[in-house]
């Protein structure tokens, strides 16, 4: 569905050097990204600020032309075949609106039907579905400028889907939303992805979006792909581990060793300890631990994706 090969984008930036002189410097925003995304995949595209996420997305949607490499979306060249591609993709920019600011939401939808030349019956069916799933009915008659951010984002999602796109690009769709709206957007996207009809590519800074939605994670930094694979693969690669947190009735004895695990945290006068599980199951570790000390409370903590990604960005 999406194929890029050694995709590049350079920007020339003029930098002040000295009082009047300006030097031209080339910045590589995207420095050779090769991706292959199949139909129906849900891909999270993440990276620190300025890593080249939005630039890649703009090249995939036909807004920017690449400086080098090849790109193909839905079998089309994004820039030369922009209007044809536009009919097959949907785009949601979290930080700017695609809707008509002063018009009621439903008028924006009606207008999009004309712009994308969607048959009335199809349009109505898709709108019906979005209205149900996203609870749009309460604010369909409200001008967009009066909607809350969460309501507006639900409107934006609908607007991007009314022409039945094959690929949906989402640029930070949950930015600035409250917890409830985030949940609503995520479960809607999850449901959408589950049908397998739509390929989903989303950039985000909220890794909970990724955990909830994406099987596959592409991490980009300084314009290069530094990871492409499942979240589990990322954890495995960066050695992130589950851990065992235990509250003890008596302090942990000095020199205690739990086979297959490493002691990584000691708190509250050795009454609370944390072990990272290296090559042992949680069950085995717990069994070993109870035989040695009396335990009051116990929990197994999943590895935190934020930590992994933070380590990845830092390296």
């Amino acid at each position: 569905m999406i194929k890029t090969k050694d995709l590049q984008k350079n920007f020339a930036v003029r930098v002040k050097s000295g009082r009047f002189r300006r030097e031209k410097r080339v910045v590589e925003a995207v420095a050779g990204v090769s991706l292959s995304i199949e139909a129906g995949e849900m891909v999270g595209y993440i990276g620190p600020n300025g890593a080249g996420k939005s630039t890649t997305l703009k090249m995939l949607t036909g807004v920017l032309s690449p400086s080098g490499g090849e790109v193909e979306v839905c079998g089309l060249q994004p820039v030369p075949q922009r209007t044809r591609l536009a009919l097959r993709i949907g785009v949601v920019f979290g930080q700017r609106s695609q809707l008509w600011w002063d018009l009621p939401l439903h008028e924006s939808f009606a207008l999009l039907r004309h712009i994308y030349r969607v048959p009335a019956a199809e349009h109505a069916a898709r709108l019906r579905r979005c209205r149900d799933l996203l609870d749009l009915d309460d604010f369909l008659d409200t001008p967009v400028r009066q909607l809350s951010l969460g309501q507006r984002m639900r409107g934006e999602l609908t607007a991007a889907l009314l022409h039945g796109p094959r690929v949906l690009f989402l640029d930070e769709p949950t930015i600035g939303l409250d917890v409830v709206s985030k949940q609503a957007v995520r479960s809607f996207l999850a449901e959408l992805g589950a049908t397998g009809d739509v390929t989903l590519v989303l950039t985000t800074h909220d890794l909970a979006d990724i955990e909830r939605l994406c099987e596959r994670l592409v991490v980009i930094d300084h314009g290069r792909v530094v990871h492409d694979g499942t979240i589990e693969a990322l954890h495995a690669r960066y050695g992130s581990r589950r851990s065992l947190v235990a509250d003890l009735s008596s302090p942990l004895p000095e020199g205690f060793v739990l086979p297959g695990a490493t002691l990584v945290g000691v708190e509250a006068d050795r009454h609370r300890v944390t072990f990272a599980l290296d090559g042992v199951t949680a069950g085995a570790a717990v069994a070993d631990l109870v035989t040695a000390v009396a335990i009051r409370d116990l929990s197994v903590v999943e590895p935190d994706i934020e930590d992994v990604v933070a380590r990845l960005y830092a390296s």
Partner: peptide
């Protein structure tokens, strides 16, 4: 400056 042009460029019209 505001990036509105991007939104225009992803639509199937001139």
């Amino acid at each position: 400056r505001a990036g509105t042009l991007d939104a225009v460029l992803v639509r199937p019209l001139g």
